[in-house]
Design a protein around this nucleic acid. Structure first.
Length: 730
DNA sequence: GGGAAGCCTTTTTTT
DNA sequence: AAGGCTTCCC
């Protein structure tokens, strides 16, 4: 029997998932097991073989990148357009629902989206208006509280407020929500919650979409939070419908977003809520060597409550995992740069190398070492384009143009550039708005007209109001690009940044020009949600929901630096996991709170399984954190790797490193001197009869009185007099 | 309104 | 260590 073309080149498990009859399915897809491939082929299969219209399929992801990749691959496979299919992020699809049913969702047609920065500012203002003690209550924590409640599907009235803290937060949440509703503003969590409430409370809308979406496929299900789960459940008839089918794909071992509300249990819950779920495990790995997989398997085996899964490969063993114990973070960085140099000299590409770390602060020292070694690199996860100050200024003008009630935008631009509307005037306007329960814009207008605001202040406010109204009239017929260009110029924003001096200001001017460019190139019909919106509204939604992936020239052959979190879903031939130390990874916070260690271990598992050919793990005995020198021991995760998979790299000879002139921060003569004075080099491994093995960290004095500091693996750091310590070099 | 000085915080990130 | 934020002062 000839194989169906869609099933060719799939393994048995993948084939079973792709060609399964219509039913609920749980695909437990291990790292590198061809998860996206299965999803894409399944969608194609539903259309080709089950003869479903793309109209009746919804596919949900977490990131725009994943959604774009999925859509692209389905189109490639089908050779046809998938426009009718809803493929997008949870937030993108929720937004689409809200736009289509804004009246039912009790939103103004021109509602705008708040990003987390806007949200935090808004909360801060609310807290000020509530006269809360700023020392005691932080906007950040209030935001955290509000979002956590929204992610749980909770409104202020759902919160008891027995406890004083909760009561205060509840009050903030309440006032914040009132302010958002009045201003026509929706934060990210609100998109999901509103869409959920819309479906829950409106049977006509709900049943329409239930009839429409026969198949819903959800990627990375281990990262869903309560509201996302509830959302999928509502849309699919809650497992009770016989005409709706849900496929979830995920890996409980790669759940690394528990700290922002993701519930790994949603995977278990799915098998309970939905009938006859077929579970398919994809365990064959097409990415890594046997060595890397068995090490990763062995680390993750230390977690309990797993659904159970063991990765295997038909590939070879490959090289052992290198483990480098650095003396400090500079030494670690220098070692890594050296290894990358020899990898490059052997004719390998730098793009194939990734440096993964637990926290962003670690990148600086790595960067310095790469810079010094003249190795080009690229850092992921910086400030995104639409999040930049000047771009947000411009977007706020545009938002206010579209929706005068947008208090967040009003606050941002009212005096940017300065136009004589100071803090005092603003306070009066805020007060007036609060008393009359109206938006800031209306309050400003009324107060100026009523002469509550006097002379200069009133004139300035009226001039601003006139500026916005004129901008709206004048640019109504313009193309999007010209409209935005005019707003940036006539508002004075461009002139303000042009007047500033320095490299930073130049970049800001460039970014404003780039924003106009982006408008010119913006294809609103690229995204079906936007078809019914004005071009400007479509662009604003795009800016809020797709924060603009940095597309630095991808052609440059550069090493990639990123956090372990952002590495999820990616793969690289050579991977360095840096700073694998107790207190850093697993992080101190995760050690302090029970139950968080397992997630750190999963993060370690994610990091290790990024490596295709070669994995290098490094840690530093001593590291400067927040300006303080800290002593660390190797991470427990290292001890969880089978010894036969590990190769301990000996400390690079210090004297060799020191002979390189002009090493800047990386020139360390200290070790040299230490050797001359004490007979031991910094970073050297030694053994003590009582304390066991350790690493030499520091020294003082010379000759018979000299003392050295040793960080012992088991008992921590100690100062010993060299003459009496009877140390063995090892 | 803007600059200097002092205080505080500090994981992980998408939308 | 360093950046962000507030406050203070002209």
């Amino acid at each position: 029997m000839t194989q169906h073309p869609l099933l060719e080149q799939l393994n048995d498990k993948q084939r079973a998932a792709v060609s399964a009859p219509e039913r609920h399915m749980l695909v437990l897809a291990g790292a590198g097991s061809g998860k996206t491939r299965v999803l894409v082929h399944r969608i194609a299969w539903l259309m080709q073989e089950v003869q479903l219209s793309p109209y009746s399929i919804m596919a949900v992801t977490f990131t725009n990148k994943a959604a774009a990749e999925m859509r692209g691959r389905v189109e490639e496979l089908m050779g046809s357009s998938t426009r009718a299919m809803w493929i997008g992020t949870f937030h993108g699809l929720a937004h689409r629902l809200l736009r289509a049913h804004y009246l039912d969702a009790k939103l103004p047609q021109n509602f705008q989206i708040l990003d987390s920065d806007d949200q935090q500012r808004m909360i801060k203002r609310i807290m000020r208006s509530l006269n809360l003690d700023e020392k005691r209550w932080s906007p950040k924590q209030a935001m955290w509280f509000i979002n956590a409640k929204k992610d749980e599907g909770l409104r202020p009235h759902h919160i008891d407020g027995y406890d004083f803290n909760e009561r205060t937060y509840k009050e903030i949440y309440d006032a914040y929500q009132v302010a958002c509703d009045r201003a026509g503003l929706v934060d990210f969590a609100e998109l999901l919650l509103r869409a959920h409430e819309l479906l829950r409370d409106n049977s006509i809308v709900r049943e329409h979409y239930q009839r429409r979406f026969r198949h819903i496929l959800v990627d990375e299900f281990q990262d869903t939070n309560a509201i996302q789960y509830a959302w999928v459940k509502l849309l699919s008839g809650g497992g009770e419908s016989t005409d709706n089918f849900v496929t979830i794909v995920g890996d409980d071992d790669q759940s690394i977003y528990g700290w922002r509300g993701a519930k790994i249990e949603n995977i278990h819950q799915f098998t309970r809520d939905f009938p006859n779920v077929e579970t398919i495990r994809l365990e064959q790995n097409y990415r890594s060597t046997n060595t890397i997989l068995s090490a990763a398997n062995s680390v993750i085996a230390n977690n309990s409550d797993r659904l159970g899964k063991e990765l295997w490969t038909e590939g070879g063993d490959g090289e052992p995992i290198d483990l480098y114990a650095a003396y400090n973070e500079m030494d670690e960085a220098r070692y890594i740069a050296g290894q990358i140099e020899s990898w490059h000299e052997q004719g390998n590409a730098l793009t194939d190398v990734a440096l993964l770390y637990r926290s962003n602060a670690q990148s600086r020292v790595l960067e310095e070492a790469l810079l010094h070694a003249r190795i080009p690199y690229r850092i992921y996860g910086g400030l995104r384009f639409f999040d930049r100050q000047e771009v947000k200024d411009a977007l706020s003008y545009l938002r206010l143009l579209v929706n005068r009630n947008d208090d967040a935008a009003f606050e941002r631009v009212i005096n940017t550039p300065t136009r004589g509307i100071g803090a005092r005037t603003l306070d009066i306007v805020r007060d007036g708005a609060r008393q009359r329960s109206i938006p800031l814009w209306d309050a400003a207008k009324q107060l100026a007209n009523e002469k509550v605001l006097t002379g200069r202040a009133a004139n300035a406010v009226l001039a601003f109001i006139d500026l916005m109204d004129t901008l709206e009239d004048d640019t109504a017929d313009f193309s999007l690009g010209r409209q935005v260009d005019t707003v940036i110029k006539n508002s004075g924003l461009m002139a303000m940044y042009q007047a500033e001096k320095g490299e930073k200001a130049e970049t800001r001017v460039e970014n404003l020009k780039e924003l106009v460019n982006a408008c010119d190139n913006f294809d609103q019909f690229d995204n079906a949600v936007n078809e019914e919106l004005t071009p400007l509204n479509a662009f604003l939604a795009h800016a809020a929901l797709e924060s603009g992936e940095e597309q630095a020239d991808e052609h440059q052959d550069a090493v990639q630096l990123m956090t372990l979190h952002s590495a999820k879903g990616l793969e690289f031939p050579l991977v360095f996991m840096c700073g694998v130390e107790e207190g850093l990874f697993p992080s101190q916070q995760s050690l302090d709170e029970s139950g968080r260690l397992a997630e750190e271990r999963r993060l370690c598992y994610v990091g290790m399984t990024r490596a295709m050919q070669k994995l290098v793990i490094t840690y530093a005995e001593q590291r400067r954190i927040y300006g303080k020198e800290m002593l660390h021991r190797a991470s427990r995760f290292i001890a969880e790797i089978p010894p036969e998979n590990l190769h301990h790299v000996r400390m690079v000879s210090r004297s060799q490193a020191d002979t390189t002139p002009a090493m800047g921060r990386f020139h360390s003569g200290a070790s040299h001197e230490a050797f001359a004075e004490t007979g031991y080099q910094l970073g050297q491994r030694v053994r003590h009869t009582k304390f066991g093995e350790g690493t030499v960290l520091n020294y003082e004095g010379s000759g018979a009185q000299s003392r050295i500091q040793i960080n012992f693996d088991d008992v921590g750091s100690k100062w010993l007099v060299v003459a009496y310590a009877r140390l063995d070099r090892c």
